[in-house]
Nucleic acid binder design. Structure first.
Length: 206
DNA sequence: TGCCAGGCCCTCTTTAGGGCCTT
């Protein structure tokens, strides 16, 4: 049975190359569209949190100071994910921090990533916004607690991913595993209808 | 004080520019 790990980081900024560090990580394991396990932890990377980040996330310096070291948390997160493929909302962002924080902990990051922003732009082009919270609201999916906290955002991204997988199955009769989603996100939006028809024919021929 | 990234998409494009999305 294929397991997908949906991840979300809270951080001190947008770029590890510019010194930003992770402050919290959450991972939700999905199997056939259902949540089967969760991991969440604040982490202490030894950096101060900018005030606007505290306003955005609610994560304070005191909270992070009381959290376990970043290296320890990333080691636990890495073991939790294993070799499962990963998905995030704007995966380019979370993947950078996944790679950077694991590298600091002396660990590799071999997992492939897919992105729910790219997927939703292709499968839900009519959405007025492709921000995570906006998509959840637009689709009528249940919110999962405070936005901009890692577990709530990971739960919402998982809910969005399950919805996209269901859409692929109901509208195009495609079992949306990670390989299919990764291929889909590399298509241009204009090419999606033809690509989906091609995939369905291929699936029917098997 | 103000700014800082980067990959993707769309269009008034392709020898480019601006907006989106993440914290």
């Amino acid at each position: 049975m294929s397991t997908i790990a949906v991840i979300d980081f809270e951080t001190t900024g947008v770029s590890p190359e510019q010194g930003a560090r992770a402050t919290e990580v959450a991972i939700v394991l999905l199997e056939q569209g259902r949540v089967v396990d969760r991991f969440q932890s604040l982490m202490n990377a030894g950096v101060r949190i900018p005030s606007f980040i505290t306003q955005l996330t609610g994560i304070t310096n005191a909270m992070v100071a009381a959290a376990p070291p970043a290296e320890q948390v990333m080691g636990e997160a890495s073991r939790f994910v294993g070799e499962a493929p990963m998905v995030a909302h704007n995966a380019a962002f979370d993947r950078k921090f996944w790679v950077a924080e694991l590298d600091r902990a002396g660990l590799s990051a071999p997992q492939p990533y897919a992105c729910t922003v790219l997927l939703s732009r292709r499968l839900i082009p009519q959405a007025p916004s492709h921000k995570l919270g906006s998509l959840i609201s637009f689709l009528g999916l249940p919110p999962a607690g405070r936005a901009h906290r890692a577990l709530a955002d990971a739960e919402m991204a998982a809910s969005l991913l399950a919805h996209l997988q269901q859409q692929l199955q109901e509208r195009w009769q495609l079992q949306a595993d990670h390989a299919l989603l990764s291929s889909l996100q590399r298509c241009s939006k204009a090419a999606v209808p033809g690509w989906l028809a091609q995939q369905r024919e291929r699936h029917a021929a098997v």
